[in-house]
Design a protein around this nucleic acid. Structure first.
Length: 342
DNA sequence: CTCGCTGA
DNA sequence: TCAGCGAGG
């Protein structure tokens, strides 16, 4: 799951009101997986419609996006395309991890350990192509544009930020910074309090922003060197990184030796790592031409949303209508306060 | 994810 | 008034 850059970055809290009118490029898979992990019933089951089809992804997308739209944030969702072939190992590892989580989940259900069941269920989420299509459909009804990336979604999100078509990327993972994104916002689509695992305590989750320039500056490194650090720690394209090297160590090594080829003690391991190819993935990512990306923000289609979510997906008419009304009021209020200036 | 209820 | 919990789908 991404790479652990946390110890090497500075993150500053950001208020959602700082994002009014700004475009953010959202890592769609990352966000939807989060909804699938968190939006579950007391024993870890997903929300479903009357046919038993999962609806947790739609619930999360609907409520979260309406709130962000109310706050005046403009989202563009970026969906992953074909993964790079070097990602096969990582994809396989995730698949195995899910199978293991499913076994633990089933056993916990069988033995009536419902707390455990809920815990293990979070690791079992599978994002089907049907769920992806449903998510895209709901986004289009909400008037929120989305882009189908050629390959890694985070590469395309980073491109939007580099070209100032977006102010920032949005993801929990740090990969977009390696792709050269100017900014990354974390914790935008999760909110409030989170329980600390196995403890009876809660922490406040607040949105935070990470600046690319600042990351390079405080560590006194270049973009190329940041990518090399990522390769040492381990990326999706070389999942485990190098033996015994964590973020702090990786930084020290690159600060001292400047590049992977000059680090004597990793020579053998390096010869077994396609590091040149991985560098290329991050430094010359496979993305569309910026002119070919058609991003249009539209009005939401109220009737169609009600029809889709309530008639087809078993959402409560009252709740959905309430939410849509709240957004409408907000839009009116915003335009009124704007009118006062003229 | 979010709402709505509940008990301090 | 508000954190915490259960339900929604």
């Amino acid at each position: 799951m991404g790479l652990n850059l946390k110890p090497l970055v500075i993150s500053n809290p950001i208020r959602i009101s700082d994002l009014v009118g700004k475009v953010v490029a959202v890592d769609a898979f990352n966000v939807i997986y989060q909804f699938l992990a968190t939006i579950r019933g007391p024993t870890g089951d997903l929300l479903t419609d009357t046919h038993g089809e999962p609806t947790s992804h739609l619930s999360g997308l609907f409520y979260r996006n309406i709130n962000l739209l109310c706050d005046g944030v403009k989202m563009v969702y970026i969906f992953d395309g074909e993964p790079h072939e070097l990602k096969a190992k990582e994809i396989n590892r995730r698949k195995k991890a899910k199978e293991e989580a499913s076994e633990k989940y089933n056993l916990a259900i069988e033995e009536g350990r419902m707390d455990d069941a809920k815990k293990f269920s979070q690791g079992t989420s599978i994002l089907t192509s049907k769920m992806i299509e449903e998510s895209k459909y709901l986004l289009s009804l909400l008037g929120i544009p989305y882009i189908n990336a050629i390959s890694e979604g985070e590469a395309t999100a980073a491109l939007l930020s580099k070209k100032d078509l977006a102010y920032s990327c949005v993801s929990q993972d740090y990969d977009s910074i390696l792709f050269g994104a100017k900014r990354l916002i974390r914790n935008l689509t999760i909110s409030g309090k989170r329980k600390i695992p196995n403890k009876n305590a809660y922490i406040d989750i607040v949105p935070e922003i990470i600046e690319y320039d600042q990351v390079l500056k405080i560590n006194n490194i270049t973009h190329e060197q940041l990518v090399d650090i990522g390769i040492l720690i381990g990326t999706d394209f070389n999942p485990n990184g190098f033996n015994g090297i964590g973020p702090k160590n990786a930084l020290k090594l690159i600060q001292k030796y400047k590049k992977l080829e000059d680090i004597e003690k990793i020579k053998d391991e390096l010869s077994n790592t396609p590091y040149k190819e991985i560098r290329e993935i991050f430094l010359n990512p496979n993305v569309a031409n910026i002119e070919d990306l058609n991003i249009q923000f539209k009005d939401l289609e109220k009737e169609k949303i009600l029809k889709y979510l309530c008639d087809e997906k078993s959402f409560s008419m009252e709740r959905v209508a309430n939410y849509l009304r709240r957004l409408e009021k907000n839009v009116i209020k915003k335009s009124e306060s704007l009118d006062k200036w003229f």
